[in-house]
């Protein structure tokens, strides 16, 4: 059925190439490049060069866009908007790879005018490429997790019907919160809030700005580089899959009179405070002590 490989163009706009490099960490890359053909890629050998992309009219099945776009940004003197327009219309599916391509990300703060993601400017929809929305899938993350991108591409190849959230992200990966699967969960559950950096114990939600309970993604479900995650290591989740990444004052929990401004996704304030009040009334020796 798949007698011919789907042709992929990986286009980079205003970016750091972090997604390209993250994808090179995909463990089954060998199989992947047997199954698909990058007809243009910024690092991997490809049939066409960027110059070909600009000068010629090349057929492609999937367009991957990495990086934010702006009417002012050019690739080799060609406006990126023109390149996106040309290949997005040819492609059967478009994937915005990373938070910049999806929401604008860090580089929405750069000096280029109107720097946004393909369909979103932070959480607000944009209109320039509205007609392409029906064939776009967003994969946010700074950077993306390689497996999330690879398996989304396989899902396209196999014509799977992926359920998407409001930002066009596959629910298979983005219905979870980063909190799911964090090894520090017990400290969160029992509101043991004495975290300091450099410890394997403790939860970063109360003091150190961890956004895991209200950020969507699979970081603690599909481990990074197959071994770990930021929160497991002891680094707060910076909310890098979110429309408003990066927020400010990232290592500090924003609190109003002691109550965290951002609560776990979908958990009401009274529910959270009731639970917190109850668990905080008890002290659990095991969780107050070092693990070993």
């Amino acid at each position: 059925m798949y007698d011919k490989k789907l042709k992929i163009i990986w286009l980079t706009a205003i970016s750091c190439n972090g997604n390209s490099h993250s994808f090179l960490n995909y463990p089954h890359l060998e199989q992947f490049i047997d199954d698909f053909e990058f007809i243009y890629h910024p690092l991997i050998y490809s049939k066409y060069s960027l110059q070909d992309l600009i000068n010629k009219d090349i057929e492609c099945d999937i367009l991957l866009l990495e990086g934010a776009i702006s009417p002012e940004f050019k690739k080799m003197d060609e406006p990126i908007i023109n390149l996106v327009d040309k290949y997005a219309h040819k492609a059967k599916k478009i994937i915005t790879v990373g938070t910049c391509a999806t929401f604008g990300g860090i580089f929405s703060q750069s000096d280029y005018a109107y720097t946004t993601g393909l369909h979103f400017d932070k959480e607000n929809p944009t209109f320039l490429f509205k007609s392409l929305k029906h064939k776009t899938i967003s994969i946010s993350g700074c950077p993306i997790q390689p497996e999330v991108l690879a398996n989304t591409i396989y899902a396209i190849q196999k014509n799977m019907d992926l359920k998407l959230d409001n930002y066009l992200r596959p629910k298979e990966f983005f219905a979870y919160t980063i909190h799911n699967g964090c090894t520090r969960n017990e400290y969160f559950e029992y509101k043991v809030d004495n975290h300091t950096f450099g410890k394997k114990e403790g939860c970063m939600f109360y003091e150190h700005g961890c956004q895991a309970p209200y950020t969507n993604g699979s970081c603690n479900k599909i481990l990074w580089n197959g071994v770990n995650s930021k929160t497991r290591a002891g680094l707060p989740c910076m909310g890098c899959t979110s429309p408003d990444f990066p927020k400010q004052n990232l290592f500090k929990t924003k609190k109003n009179m002691g109550i965290p401004q951002n609560l776990p996704l979908g958990v009401g304030k009274r529910t959270y405070l009731t639970l917190a009040g109850i668990t905080k009334a008890f002290s659990i020796k095991r969780l107050e002590e070092d693990l070993f």
């Binding site: 490099h21 993250s22 580089n225 770990n228 995650s229 930021k230 910076m238």
Partner: peptide, 8 residues
């Protein structure tokens, strides 16, 4: 460091 690239 939890992940690569882009750990802090």
């Amino acid at each position: 460091g939890g992940q690569y690239p882009h750990t802090s």
